[in-house]
Design a protein around this nucleic acid. Sequence first.
DNA 1: CGGTGGACCTGCTGGC
DNA 2: TGCCAGCAGGTCCACC
Length: 273
Amino acid sequence: MPELPEVETICRGLRALLPGRKVTEVELKEPRLRKTVNSGFPSQLHGRTILGVERRGKYILVLLEGDRIWLSHLGMSGKLIYVNAERPQAKHDHIIVKLNGGCEVRYNDPRRFGLSMVVLRSELDSLPQMRNLGPDPLDHQFDGAYLYSIGCRSKRRVRDFLIDQRVVAGVGNIYANEALFRAGIRPTKRASSIGRSGMAAISERLRELLREAIGWCGTSFSDYRDAEDRFGEFQTHLRVYNRAGERCGVCGSVIKRVRMGNRSGFYCPKCQQ
DNA sequence: CGGTGGACCTGCTGGC
DNA sequence: TGCCAGCAGGTCCACC
């Protein structure tokens, strides 16, 4: 579900709410996520004060005293929500982290594709989940020259190239398709067939797109909510994703959907060559 | 090694 | 109304 703008929105929300709060109790109701949550998870969090919240790609890092990090990934359907403890629990609330002051952070995930673990800060960078992450697309080191330098040797379709977290961290199917529309490039093209100027266009349009989407607090189709359970607004600004059969806002052509492996690609047949 | 396709889950939608 | 197929924002693993 959530890609970089959604995860960033959640992190910003949590960052305004969590630092200074102390974990008073942890309830692990359903440990079977993509990777089963360690049974020691509650005791690793218990009693610690939260110092900050950071993002790496699609991962959420809650920094705790004692050099511990609560690391979460929301998979396709996960939510991390800050609520008053009085609020009734919901179906698929798998982890409840109670804080002093009567509030809680709840991890909810119907499909259980997500991940939640506590790690030492010193071991973060060597985790398999972190080790191979590419640059953040909003960092200055991410640009057309970088994309070209690895894309020119890749036979994959450019959509698949862009959602590879080793290439760039945080981009998923929505924003890959949208960035390619803005860059005027079909998602089915091979990465190696895209020249320096094409890769420059992709990197620049992607950065603009992600900043805009963050400004609208992300894209909510069904599951995604921010840290306080509110919808994002960017879905109304999407130009091709989930719009097969509708008219392109630029040229009026009918937006197409193509199956690319297990997932859909969307494009305008006239604007994107 | 790089590239592809399926598995992992629940829930929703649309067609019959 | 019910049933079933297909689809969903991600990652990982087996296989070629």
